[in-house]
Simulated scan of single mutants.
Amino acid sequence: MRALLEVILLALQLYVYLIVASAILSWLVAFNVVNTRNDFVRSIWNFLDAVTEPALRPIRRILPNLGGVDISPVILILLIIFIQKLIVDYLLPAAF
C-alpha cells in the first residue's frame, strides 16, 4: 500500500511540473517569444495542452472572467498540494 501511495505522490508532483511548464509556455507564446509555427514548439504545446486541459477546463468554467488573467493553474496546483498533504498526513502513516 505504501508503494502505491508513493507512486501517486510522484505522479501528482510530475503533474504539477507539467502545469507549470504549460503556464510558462503559454506566456512565451502570448509574448511572442516562441512561435507555434515551429514543429517542435507545436508538438510540446499540443502535448502540454492535451495533458493539462482536461483538469483545467472544469476550474475555468467555475471561475469568473478576470479579464485575461488565468488563475486556474494556481488553483489546480493548490488542489494538488492539498491532496498530497492529505496523503502524507493521513494515508501514509497508516500504510505501515
Results as ranks from 00 to 15, higher is better:
Asn35His: 06
Val33Ile: 15
Arg37Cys: 02
Asp39Glu: 11
Thr36Ser: 04
Tyr15Glu: 05
Ile8Gly: 06
Asn38Met: 06
Tyr15Lys: 02
Trp27Gln: 15
Val34Lys: 01
Ser26Leu: 09
Ala23Tyr: 15
Tyr17Gln: 14
Phe31His: 09
Leu10Arg: 01
Leu12Trp: 13
Leu18Ile: 04
Leu9Met: 10
Leu9Ser: 14
Ile19Asn: 01
Leu10Ala: 07
Tyr15Ile: 03
Ala23Asp: 06
Val7Met: 10
Leu25Ser: 06
Val7Pro: 02
Ser22Tyr: 15
Ala21Ser: 01
Leu12Ala: 13
Leu14Gly: 14
Leu25Val: 09
Ile24Phe: 06
Ala21Thr: 01
Leu25Gly: 01
Arg37Asn: 11
Val20Ser: 11
Thr36Met: 02
Val20Gly: 10
Arg37Gln: 08
Thr36Asn: 14
Leu12Lys: 11
Trp27Pro: 10
Ile19Asp: 00
Ala21Val: 05
Ala23His: 13
Ala21Arg: 01
Glu6Tyr: 13
Ile19Cys: 00
Val20Asp: 11
Ile8Trp: 09
Ser26Asp: 15
Val16Asp: 10
Phe31Gln: 15
Leu25Asp: 09
Val16Cys: 08
Gln13Pro: 07
Gln13Leu: 14
Tyr15Leu: 12
Ala21Lys: 02
Val34Gln: 07
Val33Lys: 02
Tyr17Lys: 08
Ala11Thr: 03
Val20Gln: 12
Ala11Ile: 06
Leu10Gln: 04
Leu18Glu: 12
Phe31Cys: 03
Leu14Phe: 08
Val33Trp: 12
Val16Ser: 09
Asn38Trp: 08
Val7Ser: 14
Ser26Cys: 11
Ile19Pro: 09
Asn35Glu: 03
Asn32Arg: 12
Asp39Cys: 07
Val33Gln: 10
Ala11Gln: 12
Leu28Ser: 06
Ser22Met: 02
Asn38Gly: 00
Trp27Val: 14
Leu28Thr: 04
Ala11Val: 12
Trp27Ile: 11
Ala23Val: 15
Val33Ala: 09
Tyr15Trp: 15
Ala30Ile: 00
Asn38Arg: 05
Arg37Glu: 10
Ser26Gln: 13
Leu9Glu: 10
Ile24Pro: 04
Ala11Asn: 03
Leu18Lys: 02
Leu25Lys: 01
Val33Leu: 14
Tyr17Ala: 13
Ala21Phe: 06
Leu12Gln: 12
Leu28Asp: 03
Trp27Asn: 13
Leu10Pro: 08
Asp39Ser: 12
Val34Ser: 05
Ala21Asp: 05
Asn32Gly: 07
Val29Pro: 00
Ile19Ser: 01
Ala11Asp: 04
Tyr17His: 09
Ile8Met: 14
Leu28Gln: 07
Val33Met: 10
Leu18Thr: 04
Leu25Cys: 02
Glu6Trp: 10
Phe31Ile: 07
Gln13Lys: 15
Val33Asn: 06
Leu9Asn: 13
